[in-house]
């Protein structure tokens, strides 16, 4: 590697430092329908998480140097993947196999099914199990989240070389980190987990679009805009 280990680990140290504090859910009280209340609470949380995610993305080393068009493309394509890394990480080892959307919003299978999110529950539990089996470190989680955004296969790309450099920097940071732990296969294994994350995020996007289109669940403007970009 062209750069000393310390400069690479700076990327991961920076990602750890700028990782946002998990948000709390604001319980919706606009309806007596329990399932709808859960959905509205979840969608409100998701919308606020999106706002935080956009602020977080700006702090990933190299992201703000991309053109505005490419920043938008990456976020429009990879936002759900980046958010789901957090959900799957928080949901590890939960009794009752609950999904931890927030400390005060934990949903089990029955609650998800009642809210019309059975498919999302199944997909997210599968992702959570995968991460749990891999025994991820916090360093790996923050890097995976940034890579999910960088690796979003956005199209069209305004400046492919800059996006490629952005991806390479994160990849090299991960490689350096794993080699410093003498884990020569870990970086590859993490990269090979990205397709499952993409698949899970696609199912999540479909689930929320269906809620909006078929059950007319109202969504905040930013969330709707990002779902529509899919």
């Amino acid at each position: 590697y062209a750069h000393p280990v310390s400069s690479r680990n700076k990327v991961i140290s920076h990602l750890l430092l700028t990782e946002p504090t998990p948000l709390a859910a604001n319980q919706d009280d606009s309806t007596n329908d329990g399932s709808l209340r859960t959905l509205l609470t979840l969608c409100d949380l998701l919308n606020r998480e999106l706002l935080v995610l956009i602020g977080w993305a700006k702090q990933i080393p190299g992201f703000s140097g991309l053109s505005l068009v490419d920043q938008m493309s990456l976020l429009q394509s990879g936002w759900m993947e980046a958010l789901l890394v957090g959900v799957a990480w928080r949901s590890q080892g939960m009794p009752g196999e609950e999904l931890v959307f927030a400390g005060n919003l934990r949903l089990d299978e029955a609650q998800c099914r009642a809210a019309g999110l059975a498919d999302l529950y199944e997909a997210l539990r599968h992702l959570t199990s995968k991460y749990q089996a891999m025994n991820l470190t916090p360093e790996e989680v923050v890097t995976l989240k940034a890579m999910a955004l960088a690796n979003s296969d956005a199209d069209p790309v305004d400046c492919p070389d800059s996006v490629q450099r952005f991806q390479d920097e994160l990849h090299e940071a991960l490689q350096e980190y794993e080699l410093s732990r003498r884990e020569q296969h870990r970086a590859g294994r993490l990269l090979m987990s990205l397709p499952l994350l993409r698949q899970t995020a696609d199912r999540a996007v479909q689930a929320f679009l269906q809620l909006h289109r078929h059950r007319c669940v109202p969504l905040h403007k930013l969330l709707l805009e990002m779902l529509d970009a899919k």
Binding site: R48, L51, G55, K58, M72, L222
Partner: peptide, 20 residues
């Protein structure tokens, strides 16, 4: 850009984290 105006505005605002 017109279709994605909230994201566009949030990214343009500043390089600091987005205020809630």
């Amino acid at each position: 850009k017109e279709k994605h105006k909230i994201l566009h505005r949030l990214l343009q605002n500043s390089t600091s984290p987005v205020e809630l």
